[in-house]
Nucleic acid binder design. Sequence first.
DNA 1: TGATCCGCAGACAGACCTGTCTACTGTGAG
DNA 2: CTCACAGTAGACAGGTCTGTCTGCGGATCA
Lengths: 196, 196
Amino acid sequence: MATTAQPKRSPRERLLAAANELFYHEGVQTVGIDRIIEHAGVAKASLYNTFGSKEELVRAYLESRHGKTMDRLTRAVAARTEPRARLLAVFDSQTDLFARPDFHGCAFASASAEAPRGGLVEQATDTYRGEIRALLAELAAQAGVPDPAALARQLHLVYDGATLSARMDRDPSVAAVSRATAEALLDAALPPARRD
Amino acid sequence: MATTAQPKRSPRERLLAAANELFYHEGVQTVGIDRIIEHAGVAKASLYNTFGSKEELVRAYLESRHGKTMDRLTRAVAARTEPRARLLAVFDSQTDLFARPDFHGCAFASASAEAPRGGLVEQATDTYRGEIRALLAELAAQAGVPDPAALARQLHLVYDGATLSARMDRDPSVAAVSRATAEALLDAALPPARRD
DNA sequence: TGATCCGCAGACAGACCTGTCTACTGTGAG
DNA sequence: CTCACAGTAGACAGGTCTGTCTGCGGATCA
């Protein structure tokens, strides 16, 4: 069977799709198991056979978002060749992201807001943030910045702040501010000789 | 153990203190009414006579944090005279804030993450963010920036991002990055003649 | 044909949630 | 003293939560 769009996806896939929709839009704490299985059209036993607990389902949900976000970013970066444009592509991509009708902020920021410390949510969040930071540092290095790690920390602030503002102010236009801010910081971090 | 036995504070005060402690550290959704009244040493009827509902208690909790934060910022600003230093004082103050052992991110960001849209939490959040934005714009104007509103939006990004990173990465040192980033953006926004 | 397995449907347990209500206690005003 | 009233203690209602368990239908394979 080479068909990718089967009429019946596996319970695991349907559960993850339901989690992606309900957890992301309404919150991990506020959405209960019953609504997940109803939305997925799956038996409760299937959920507990597949994931074992709600917390593990949340972890799987966050991991799936982690993968999607990294795909989105690496695709945006890969579409450019000039190192400076590749770095700024991360912030360009926020324009479309924030404008999506189903955008509702950073899934990790929201999920970790009320998650117990030291749990699976915190683990998934740490992994995610480490990868974002590494991507920014790598692109900063390729752009010829003397201290890529330092610029990556600054840009990570801007990236986070923009995502948070876009949700809390319900204002997608903050993406333009974010992009301009990133550019200003990149310019300030470049040695004068390299600015062109 | 309920931490009371002080000179009799009113039920309202004790409830707000309990809310400030429990809601802030563990989350608005995860902490129930029973834990609030137990921690406050107050009868359940007193809570409902005073606030009417949990949502109203949450609103009062957020308003009290709003007041405390604005006090902290205006005090930090008032301690300086030079306009540039007054603007940067907002970011200087993050150093102490993030280092506090009870720091746990922005109460508004956490509370709004899973709050229903259009509710009291959203209202309180909008008001809070508007005031922060206005403060930044006013300080930017006093610093002689040509477009204070534009710089205020950038600095708000940085302020938000730093608060979020400090919580999610459990890393208070991000305050220094935030301060340096704000300074770089301020410099970039000033007309060359005014930079000194 | 029969055996095995996957998944669905839903009852159930035990805990917790918000919010209401009754009954009691201490205190201050007139 | 009497009365009003603010506050306490806690039962209660009605619902939701996570997680377990049983029973059943359909598919697959020897």
